[in-house]
Nucleic acid binder design. Structure first.
Lengths: 213, 213
DNA sequence: GTCTATACGCCGATAGAC
DNA sequence: GTCTATCGGCGTATAGAC
């Protein structure tokens, strides 16, 4: 679960995983730990989450966690990396769509689909980034890179729509979603996300139409 | 420091304070503790902040904190109450302005003025509300009430501008600010808030103009 | 590689002297 | 009312058996 998990889980249960040196003894414990970390961090927040919570969610004995991650920080880092990979997977899927407006609307639609989760726990990535900015470790920079990757992708869509102010529009769209997540979460009202999602759809359509002129 | 602290500190160093039963022994230690709590919660987050941090910031011995607040939760509650009072004070000040559009633009201008702080620590109230939603205590409801109070005030301004969709516009404006705070904070770029602040000004002007037609 | 048992430090909270 | 000293619990991390 990342900025948007949406359809497929993919990647996760697959056998091979790039990068990781230790191929470890079957069961993919490392993978399970990362996925558990991402979920529990989202639901409880990084600071409130103990390694015991993650170990239990991943069904791995507490002490064994340290074989894969020497510190809690490394687990947080792995969680951020996971968000990054899921964002890449999402934009790859969206890039298959025929035109930029459709891609942006699909992005928004995915956010709206996750509104129940957002109402309960906020944006999986936004809340993480917010929390990392109050920590001592340098992971906030990694979070910034992921956020920037999303902004860059959105900006390129607006550029393809012929907008010279694509960067400002990208900030506007992503900020709209992040802010909606905060309100939806605080007020526990998924309806906000649905209503504003409709508005954003119309807004994107308006931009795409104005290009045709 | 609340959703917007802006101009005056007021209220704070003043002698009397409504509500508080204990008038306590001079020095206004309770007041100092609350203000320190609000600030440190903003800078470090609630979970990371220890009572020792607050005591030090307020220049009050650790053990003495418990004379004023029996638990950490009560300090968090007092911080939320403080945000609520500061919001009331802010809207009171804005209500003195002649027309609704000017009031809304002053609200946005105040947010933009705080952009350096937002870049470093996020929105003082938004980050608190986000964090409280992951806690066990029921303070998230109190935070929701404050957010709702802001939304209601903004909505009433749009209503006065003759808009039937004032509620949606209020959500749009507040979400824009909250989302901008998240991006500004994550990317450590106060410039985002300034640029989008200009856009929001123009947007408000556009709404006010369309009313004249 | 896997897991149990435990050391160590920190923080919330209390007791009680002044 | 004010402050010091300290308890008790929990969470990170480690040691070391298997």
């Amino acid at each position: 679960m990342s900025i948007l998990s949406q359809v497929t889980d993919s990647e996760s249960t697959a056998t091979g995983r790039a990068g990781s040196p230790g191929r470890s003894g079957r069961g993919g414990k490392r993978e399970r730990l990362v996925r558990a970390a991402v979920q529990v961090f989202h639901e409880q927040g990084v600071e409130k989450t103990t390694l015991g919570d993650i170990a239990r969610a991943a069904e791995v004995p507490l002490g064994n966690v340290y074989y894969y991650f020497k510190t809690k920080d490394q687990l947080v880092e792995a969680a951020v990396d996971d968000h990054c990979e899921q964002l890449d997977a999402l934009t790859d899927r969206l890039d298959a769509l025929p035109d930029p407006a459709a891609r942006l609307k699909a992005l928004v639609a995915g956010w709206v689909d996750q509104r129940e989760t957002a109402a309960r726990f906020g944006c999986p990535f936004g809340t993480l980034a917010t929390e990392l900015d109050k920590r001592d470790d340098g992971l906030d920079r990694a979070a910034a890179k992921v956020m920037l990757a999303l902004l860059d992708w959105v900006e390129s869509q607006f550029t393809q729509l012929g907008r010279a102010d694509a960067d400002a529009l990208a900030v506007e769209l992503v900020a709209a979603y992040q802010g909606l997540s905060v309100l939806t979460n605080t007020l526990r009202d998924p309806g906000l996300m649905a209503t504003q999602g409709d508005r954003l759809h119309a807004w994107i359509d308006g931009i795409a139409r104005s290009r045709a002129c």
